[in-house]
């Protein structure tokens, strides 16, 4: 999953630690989300989006190619 977290943080001039404090997680967790090593749970994704005053879709981008590459099996 791609994320615009770094851009949004830069706009707000927030450090990773400040964002982590806002959403109640460790700084390392924010870093792992930004570098794409960890996909947050839905509640955490909402918390992060709300911290920026945005919708989840404006912060996290789900690449459509992933669905096309792996069609659902019936």
């Amino acid at each position: 999953m791609k994320t615009r977290l770094r851009v949004l943080r830069a706009e707000k001039e927030w450090s990773q630690a400040e964002l982590a404090a806002h959403v109640g997680v460790a700084r390392g967790t924010i870093n792992a989300i930004e570098t794409g090593k960890y996909d947050p749970s839905l509640p955490l994704a909402f918390k992060i989006a709300r911290a920026f005053g945005k919708n989840v879709e404006e912060v996290f981008l789900y690449p459509e190619e992933q669905d096309q590459a792996r069609p659902a099996q019936v």
């Binding site: 630690a17 982590a20 404090a21 806002h22 959403v23 109640g24 700084r27 709300r50 911290a51 005053g53």
Partner: peptide, 10 residues
């Protein structure tokens, strides 16, 4: 209202 203050995790 939607971003309550939380203790600093560091």
């Amino acid at each position: 209202a939607i971003v309550p203050h939380q203790p600093f995790r560091d």
